[in-house]
């Protein structure tokens, strides 16, 4: 994957480069608005990490230009400004995610992975998370390239979790997906979750329960 980092603070830029390169990415770093614009016009990138406070211009203008050109490259905004207005404006202009400084590198990596995965999914219509994959066209789920033979509801549950992989899937969403809008017992969902958990045993993945909120498909080893 080819990543573009636009960040004027050299310390952060270097950290980002060092953190993201080992994940199998090529990282280009630019510290100025003008250079970044040139790079964006000439080359293709899979993800842009954009710092809003650049010395020679507002990052939001760059973003607006990008989207105006019809370029759908995912953009992750990094900023020290944590006002909700700036966040909303950035998302309105077509940013895909937003990370306020200071952030931990682990969180950054997670976000980058999610964005790349989403863009990948958009590209090949496949949902993947680690060894787990789901082909939306054929409706076949695989684990480590092995087809998982799942009943219909478990398959839907897996699909929903995969869709939100890495973040919490609200329990209401899951219930609606599995049982429609009809009234169901409070632990009906839990039954299917525990069935799915058994199937994922030993795969390096797990389904974590968030009390009162929902479930999250995540790596087993935190």
């Amino acid at each position: 994957m080819r990543l573009l980092v636009i960040e004027d603070d050299s310390l952060i830029a270097r950290s980002l480069e060092q953190a993201l390169t080992p994940l199998g990415n090529t990282v280009d770093v630019f510290t100025h608005h003008a250079q970044a614009r040139e790079a964006l016009q000439s080359g293709h990138f899979d993800l842009v990490l954009l710092d809003l406070g650049l010395p020679d211009g507002n990052g939001l203008t760059l973003l607006a230009e990008l989207r105006q050109r019809g370029d759908t490259t995912p953009v992750l905004i990094l900023t020290a400004r944590d006002g909700i207005d700036a966040r909303v404006e950035g998302l309105d202009l077509g940013a895909d995610d937003y990370l306020a400084k200071p952030f931990s590198l682990a969180e950054l990596e997670a976000r980058v992975r999610a964005l790349l995965r989403r863009s990948q999914q958009r590209a090949d219509n496949r949902l993947t998370f680690g060894p787990l994959a789901f082909d939306a066209t054929s409706g076949v789920a695989t684990l480590n390239e092995t087809v998982l033979d799942l009943p219909r509801r478990e398959l839907r549950l897996l699909e929903s979790l995969l869709l939100h992989a890495g973040s919490i899937t609200p329990r209401e969403t899951l219930e609606n997906r599995l049982f429609g809008f009809g009234d169901v017992g409070s632990n009906a969902l839990e039954v299917y979750i525990s069935r799915l958990r058994k199937r994922l045993d030993g795969s390096g993945l797990r389904i974590r329960t968030f009390r009162g909120m929902g479930y999250r498909l995540e790596d087993a080893a935190p």
């Binding site: 931990s104 682990a106 969180e107 973040s167 919490i168 968030f210 009390r211 909120m213 935190p222």
Partner: peptide, 13 residues
């Protein structure tokens, strides 16, 4: 609930 800092606790609704 999803933040790194919260992973050691049980945050719930």
């Amino acid at each position: 609930a999803q933040r790194d800092a919260a992973q050691g606790h049980d945050i719930g609704l």
